[in-house]
Design a binder for these strands. Structure first.
Length: 234
DNA sequence: CAGTCGCA
DNA sequence: GATG
């Protein structure tokens, strides 16, 4: 993987965002890209998917291993769902709140995430987990690494919907100072390779409601949590 | 401990 | 670097 974005694939919204003074693609690192507005055209399908998943596996606020309640509300779809509790962070095939498997990840969502990853230079991405995080005003995500996945060779694909958020983008060490970048409805961030373990987070949500979603922001994070064919063969 | 939280 |  080169870490360079493959050409094209801007979805046709590039000019609109450029006209608003925003780069269509912002490099957050050697192998980390913000694809501005790239998912805006899929918002309706994404929101319908979120409603469908939440209807089966309701959004709920989880406890950290230290016993604090997280301010975001979480659910998942796909073969594995991310959970947190006194036992630690886990990917599990069964939703512990219901004792049932997580709702399936729609094929088109899998393929869309793979397409986004490819545009950021990561060919062959095949996510098995889609974490859904809902932020209401005041909700935040402290700086953290995504490190509960089996294969750090696989990238992370993050899709923002609804209210604008301030994305905190740090370094490989917790004490590295984090920069900030605004994430708008439809923005996509993809990171992997050398940037796979970068600390990141979301500042407390604030600001005006979004026309479509009102006073909330929903983030979809697509990951390969379980083993890949390549990792399993080693 | 830390995918928290808030202060210096 | 304290606290739930």
């Amino acid at each position: 993987m080169s870490g360079q974005p493959a050409g094209g694939g801007g979805g046709g919204d590039g000019d609109l965002f450029a006209a608003a003074g925003l780069e269509p693609r912002l490099a957050l690192g050697r192998q980390a890209w913000l694809l501005r507005g790239r998912a805006a055209g899929r918002a309706d399908a994404l929101l319908a998917c979120i409603a469908e998943v939440a209807g089966q596996a309701p959004l709920r606020s989880l406890l950290t291993p230290g016993g604090r309640r997280m301010s975001v509300e979480t659910s998942s779809c796909g073969a594995l769902g991310w959970t947190s509790g006194p036992g630690g962070y886990r990917y599990q095939p069964i939703d512990p709140a219901r004792g049932l498997p997580w709702p399936a990840m729609p094929g088109w969502l899998h393929d869309f995430a793979a397409e986004l990853a490819a545009e950021a230079g990561f060919a062959g991405f095949s996510p098995d987990s889609c974490l859904i995080n809902r932020y209401r005003p005041g909700a935040r995500m402290a700086l953290h690494q995504d490190r509960d996945e089996r294969d750090f060779g696989q990238p992370i694909v993050s899709i923002s919907l609804g209210m604008t958020a301030r994305f905190l983008w740090g370094g490989l060490r917790r004490q590295d100072k984090a920069g900030q970048v605004a994430l708008f409805h439809g923005d996509v961030v993809v990171w992997g390779g050398a940037d796979r373990l970068r600390f990141h987070g979301i500042a407390p949500l604030a600001g005006p409601p979004h026309p479509l979603l009102g006073s909330e922001r929903i983030n979809l994070t697509l990951r390969r949590a379980g083993p890949t064919a390549r990792a399993a063969a080693r």
